[in-house]
Design a protein around this nucleic acid. Sequence first.
DNA 1: CGGCGCTCTGAATGCGCTTACATGGGTGGG
DNA 2: CCCACCCATGTAAGCGCATTCAGAGCGCCG
Lengths: 360, 360
Amino acid sequence: MSAAPTVYDVADKAGVSIATVSRVYRSPQSVREPTRDRVLEAARSLGYVPSGNARGLASRTTGVLGLCFPDYADPDVDAEGAGPDGDGDDDGAVVMLYSDQIIRGMERAARRHGYALLIAASLEGGPESLVAQVAGRVDGFAVLSQTVPTSDLEVIAQRLPIVMLAGPREIDHLDHIEVANADGVRELTRHLVEDHGLRRLAFVGGQESSPDARARFRGFQEACRETGLPVPSAPDLRAEPMTQAEGSRAAEALLDREGPAPEAMLFANDQMAVGALHALERRGVRVPEDIAVTGFDGIPLGRVVRPSLTTVRQPMRRLGEEAVELLVRRLGDRTLEPASLMLPVTVVRRGSCGCGPAGA
Amino acid sequence: MSAAPTVYDVADKAGVSIATVSRVYRSPQSVREPTRDRVLEAARSLGYVPSGNARGLASRTTGVLGLCFPDYADPDVDAEGAGPDGDGDDDGAVVMLYSDQIIRGMERAARRHGYALLIAASLEGGPESLVAQVAGRVDGFAVLSQTVPTSDLEVIAQRLPIVMLAGPREIDHLDHIEVANADGVRELTRHLVEDHGLRRLAFVGGQESSPDARARFRGFQEACRETGLPVPSAPDLRAEPMTQAEGSRAAEALLDREGPAPEAMLFANDQMAVGALHALERRGVRVPEDIAVTGFDGIPLGRVVRPSLTTVRQPMRRLGEEAVELLVRRLGDRTLEPASLMLPVTVVRRGSCGCGPAGA
DNA sequence: CGGCGCTCTGAATGCGCTTACATGGGTGGG
DNA sequence: CCCACCCATGTAAGCGCATTCAGAGCGCCG
């Protein structure tokens, strides 16, 4: 653990030059076998590990891709842990987070291409931020929308490939992947209207600042237009943050409003919808008999709640995989036209809208 | 995206020397404000991003910690996706994997300390493996047991701090964190014997090669000894891989054996136990009335199956956090004695052993 | 047996940055 | 009013490796 051995040490010990040592690692077949063995033996005995930094400096490539995502902090996650089981600490997170899926997708795809993955939740900005730290260490990276100021991205993009994930295309000369938020909600809404014959629909949106939430509402508007329902100009309610607690609150608020109760509540994400299910159960309102409830995301929790949640499933893992593909492709040819993918989503019909197995 | 600008370019443009540029980033307060502003402005306009490689080379530190874990491939994960819902693709993974939790724990803790996290699922060995790639790029890293050959670790450990996670201590001069596998099963077993009065217990183990599985069986043996039951010398059955499918098969095999059926089946992990629950239900065997079933791990799935699964919960996220703490501590003082932590586990009593809420 | 073409190895240079160390222009005290 | 000092900045020497260009050794043909 003292002074880390370098190529020089290995070269000395093996009686060769540093160039040969380097070649042993970079292109083993170009070194005669006896020589190669001597070098490897020397390396092993010295505890030599090639310095990625030096290698990167000299070859101008790191073999690492990066991902910047928003902080994990998520009220529901930490809340889930403390269930009635007495499962006290926060290891029992039920919600498999968005980011986890993307990380997994990226890791897999990156590995296939021989890259490692550097991840960092975004902190604040500034010259010495984690983002800069990441940017300086990778060959290219993916950024979840809303996590890094676009001004920073503009600067970094001059130096290396960036792909923006999930969210509208903020910088149009960058690669970009999003999911079909509007399409998903539109299709889901039409299902409620056309297949279940519901007409009094309420939509609970998210933060005004969330492009995803806005797109989802837009899908709702489109469906209303297409099915001849009145087109609302804004969500019936907006929740922030988009947690179970807020979902519960929103559901109650909708029930307590003047006029006839809605026949369906559409939520901008699954967590809120699950919260709503709890609230409705407490109020004695039956789902889906009295009211249909839907979410968006396709989190695992939605499958195991009762009734199981009708929702729109996002291909998050695939998002990560496609991100890597895009990066690798661009690293291969920097002159490619910026791509903008829209990943399709799937409407998952389960119990909470009246589909699904009886009793589910 | 052409030639990436360097300190020299920035220095030129700002009319200072490269040392000043460097100082602006390393210790801003040591540069007078007007100068600093000129430099930052020049950097911004050029799209300058400091090269992590060069910085790392010069300063002999990377600001990155690493994690090597086994490949994600896990039959149950991909199988779960295709439920009766028609949730077709593999985005619906119900099982939040071990590795995900550890990654999350490490990422959080690393960020707190100003580090980024480099992750790589282990591939094969060899000089040019991903492991070597990781080792050369980080200040220290954590390795899940069984993912990297100890011979490689011995070599790498001469150069940087390594902490081994989950598994027995294979190299005694390295930091090491494990989970109290044996204690957990011992306590769980005693619960079954002493609180539920069960005496005919069957234990389903995992691969012979899995130290965790072995430790869990050891805990079972200890409990048998302490409660005066006959001490088995080997698990009643061994399953491999430790999946739901194998769990089902094991449960059926146990039922089909000669002699009186067991009063309890203890599985070496939750996935097998869940598989067993399914098999028992198909056979019309009631849990917990006819037989108790227990697992190990505390995966979220165990909470939502019916009956909910009595198990031993591992603090996986904390494992990641503690790993980072150990690494950071050692980076601060390399002469510290190697530490070996044993994280406590928690017996979670739920429906499948006869505890838990009625009907759960 | 000389020379040609190989293959394998060595010497030297530079990648972009950090960091002693040197320098020069203030500042305050004697 | 001069000198000792300090602060801001410049100078220069690597950090550990990849890589280019030569040179050395060797086999083979003529």
